[in-house]
Design a binder for these strands. Sequence first.
RNA 1: GCACCGUUCGUCUAGGGGUUAGGACACCGCUCUUUCACAGCGGUAACACGGGUUCAAUUCCCGUACGGUGUACCA
Length: 483
Amino acid sequence: MSVRVRFAPSPTGFLHIGSLRTALYNYLFAKHHGGVCILRIEDTDRTRLVEGAIEEQISSLAWAGVTFDEGPHVGGNHGPYTQSERFDLYREYGMKLVANGTAYYAFDTAEELDAMRVRQQAAGIAPKYDRSAMRNQYTLGEHETQRLLEEGALHVIRLKVPLHQDVRFSDVIRGEVIVNGREIDDQILLKSDGFPTYHLANVVDDHLMEITHVIRAEEWLPSTPKHIILYQAFGWEPPTFAHVPLLLNPDRSKMSKRHGDVMVRDFAAKGFFPDALVNFVALCGWNPGSDNEFFSMQELIESFSLERVNKAGAVFDYQKLNWMNGEYLKRRDVHDLARELHPRLVERGFTYCDPSYVADVIALVRERVAFLDDIAEFADYLFGDTLSPLSEASAALLSGNDTLMQALDSFRQGLDAETLADESAFKGLAQRSAEAAGMKMGALMKPLRLVLSHREVGADLFRTAQLLGLERCRARLEAFCIR
RNA sequence: GCACCGUUCGUCUAGGGGUUAGGACACCGCUCUUUCACAGCGGUAACACGGGUUCAAUUCCCGUACGGUGUACCA
C-alpha cells in the first residue's frame, strides 16, 4: 500500500514554525516512501476563521520548499480538500453512528454544560459529560428525543464511548499507549451549528482520503483514543499514528510568541534562508544518527525516518539557528547573493552597488555575519561615503595625538595605486609611516581602520582598502589629516 | 485534580548492560594575523532521584520527583 499522509492546518492565523516542522516531517516521510502528501484545510470552527490565512500558510510552506500533491490549491481525486466544502458528508457519517448505536443526540445548552462542569469540579470529579444526568437520548427517551428533533431543537451528536474497555494503539514514536475507557469523554461529534468537530471531520476525512500515516504534534496524543473509538465505531481500520514532540520555549512550555518569532513569515522577513530554516527545524526532534548537521531538502528526504524522531520536546535555540544561517551564507554562491542584496543596497541609497563589486564585498565580509542584510550594515563604509559616527573611545584614540597624526599623514602621502595593488607594499608603507613617526606598525593599524571605515572591527584591512580604491582611501585620509 | 507523554552537558543531540559517555551551538582559553575580528587548536560542562534484575546499569523493570500536553459545541 502506498503511503498517503496529510498536513491539516486550521486557517486561524499565520503558519507557525511548529506547524512548518510537522508539515515538513509529513512531506519528508511521504517523499522518502514515494508517497503522496496532502494538504487539507480544517475550517470547521466558523468563529476562528481568519481571512487570507489559507493563502498565507500555503505560501509560507512553499517558501520553505514544502509542497503538496493534493490539496485545495492543486486538486486531486480525493477532494474537496476543505472541510467546509464537505459539510454534508459529516452529518451523513454522524447519522450512521447514531443509527448503529455508537453515538447519540444530546440537547444540553452551553449553560447546562457549564453548570455541570462547575458541579463536578466542586465535587472534585474529573469534568466529563454525564450521560445519565443530562438531556440526551438516554435520559429523555425515544419519544421526547423524536419530538425535539422534529421541533428543530438545537442539538449535538455525541460519541458513545464504551466505558468498560481499554483503548490501545501503537504510536510509531511512543510505542504502546493504553487508556481506560472510563477516562474518555463522550466527545461532541457534530456541533449544533451542523459543523463537525475536529474529531469527527478528521477521522472521516483521513479514512475517505485513504490516509495511511497520521503524523501530527504531540498535543494530539491525548485525543487519539477518541479517534480510535471512532474508527472502531465506523468499522474502519485506523491509520498508523506518529506523534512528534513539541517545539518549546526556553522555559519548556509550548513554543509561543513572547519569547521570539514563531511565525514562518517572521523568519523569512528577518532574512533567514528557507533551506537553513528547514535544515534547522528538521533537526529539532529528529537526527539521522550521524554527526552531519547540514542537509538539503533532497538529503533530508533520503535520510528521514519516523523511527529516528525523538520523544522529548525540543527547546528552540534561536542562537544556533542564527549560526546555521551564517553557515548557509558562507556556502552560497556570491554572485547569487550579490543579485539578492543589490536591490536592497540601491533602496538604501548606497552609491557603490555595482553587482561585481557587491560580490567582492560579500566574499570579503560574509564570514563575519549571519545574515545577508547584515552585510549592508557591516560594510556600509564600502557601499557609501557616509560613515557611521565614531564611538567615543575611537574618537578619543584618534584625537590630539601628534605622533599618530604624523604617521597617518605620511601614510596618506605615500599611498598610491601601486601600493594598493600589492599587499606587502601596503604593509611596508604602513610600517615605514609608523616608524618614521616613532610608533609601532601594530599601533597604526587600528587608527587606520578607524579612519577608513569608522569601525573597530572589519575584514582584512588591505583587502578593505583595495575595495575602497585609491580615491576613497585618499579622501578619507584627507578628511582626517587636513583639518 | 485526573489522564497521557517525557527526562544524557546551559541548549540541540549521539550512544547504549562493561565507553576516558561522542558531536554541534553557546561560553572560556591558546595560537595565528605587527590591529579588532575570522580561522585553527584546546578547555569547562550531562546520564533527575530511589529501589530492583544482573558478575556488571546511564542503558532493562518498578516507583518517586520534576516538567510538558490534554481535559471546549477550538483545532
